[in-house]
């Protein structure tokens, strides 16, 4: 860690690193402050209005609904206090095997995306930057899964593992593997396969983002480190990673939100089982069936209210790992 900081400081020295707007000498005094305020207001006006109208106003409905239930006699939604939320926690606590498993599956996407997929993408991005032979071609190919329709990717993926049509099992048998498991036929195998699929197909987007960030590192810093005789591992961990830390943090945060957003992969790979439900998929299916919207609203809201502070805490903690370096 201290070495990493030293490297980061070296980078900072090279770049005469940054000061934030606040630290800048306030040459124009009050005037500057006022103009800054105007700037902030003008710039944020449209994004905030857009957010207010198309997110807040739209979701007010969801929030209000989460405290309601449908009254079948009057045909209206009526206030029912925290009843929906209480039911959410009762179900997770064991009242419903499906809900409980849904939450567990969803939470598992966090380690899978953040501790398997993300480190792999960093490693891949770094070596793409290091000009592995054919790097340009690899970069295009690695991005393929982001543009090939999910339907085709999932179709080839599951066909490949089909016990009689696929080619994976024959290869394994030829290699002497016995007792080949049912890949998609039982839990938790099917859940593990979905995770494997997510890693396989999901690296591309991360690689585009992270290798974009790495290749923006000034050439001088990398060369400087080379002159110092820094090895690959140290170069990666002590220079490259600290320098692109904000991008990594952001990708990590996005990985955290996948707990709430993953839906297409289980829907396509295991279409008719509740074993591999995720929070988003459960809500999607529930909305599609139109059953008990208030409960689903409360479910989504409760998950987010618990999840978002945790994500922010993680973001805060990650921000402490390396000092921000501007270059």
């Amino acid at each position: 860690m201290s070495e990493a900081k030293a490297a980061a400081t070296a980078a900072e020295k090279l770049q005469k690193g940054g000061q934030s707007a606040e630290n800048a000498p306030k040459r124009k005094g009050l005037d500057r402050k006022k103009r800054k305020a105007i700037f902030i207001c003008v710039m944020l006006a449209f994004p905030l209005v857009q957010l207010f109208v198309f997110w807040f106003l739209v979701n007010v409905n969801t929030v209000v609904m989460s405290f309601q239930e449908f009254d079948w006699l009057s045909g209206k939604y009526i206030f029912n206090g925290f009843k929906n939320f209480i039911r959410v926690f009762e179900e997770i606590g064991g009242g419903s095997a499906v809900t409980r498993r849904t939450v567990i599956n969803s939470v598992l996407y966090f380690p899978v995306t953040c501790f398997i997929s993300l480190p792999l993408s960093i490693l891949f991005s770094y070596f793409l930057y290091k000009k592995v032979p054919g790097a340009a071609a690899f970069r295009v190919i690695f991005f393929l899964p982001s543009i090939i329709p999910v339907a085709v990717l999932t179709m080839t993926f599951s066909f490949s593992f089909d016990a009689t049509l696929g080619f994976v099992n024959p290869i394994l048998r030829a290699l002497g593997v016995e007792n080949i498991p049912s890949w998609f036929g039982r839990y938790p195998n099917n859940q593990i396969m979905i995770f494997a699929y997510c890693i396989w197909a999901g690296l591309g987007t991360n690689i585009v983002l992270i290798s974009g960030a790495i290749s923006r590192i000034p050439v001088e810093i990398m060369e400087y480190s080379k002159l110092e005789g820094v090895g690959k591992a140290r170069e990666l961990f002590q220079i490259a990673i600290p320098l692109v830390w904000p991008t990594i943090t952001t990708t990590f945060i996005l990985g955290c939100t996948s707990v709430f957003t993953v839906m297409m992969q289980p829907l396509m790979l295991t279409p008719s089982t509740t074993d591999t439900y995720t929070i988003a998929l459960m809500i999607y299916n529930g909305v599609l069936n139109g059953r008990n919207l208030p409960y689903l609203s409360a479910f989504g809201l409760a998950m987010s209210v618990i999840g978002v502070p945790i994500i922010l805490l993680i973001k805060w903690a990650l921000g402490k790992v390396y000092a921000d370096v501007e270059y």
């Binding site: 089909d162 016990a163 049509l165 049912s182 998609f184 036929g185 039982r186 195998n189």
Partner: peptide, 16 residues
């Protein structure tokens, strides 16, 4: 049943 039907996609089953 054919091997591992529980893990088969519907289209694959149709084909078989």
């Amino acid at each position: 049943s054919m091997e591992d039907c529980a893990g088969k996609q519907y289209t694959a089953a149709q084909m078989e």
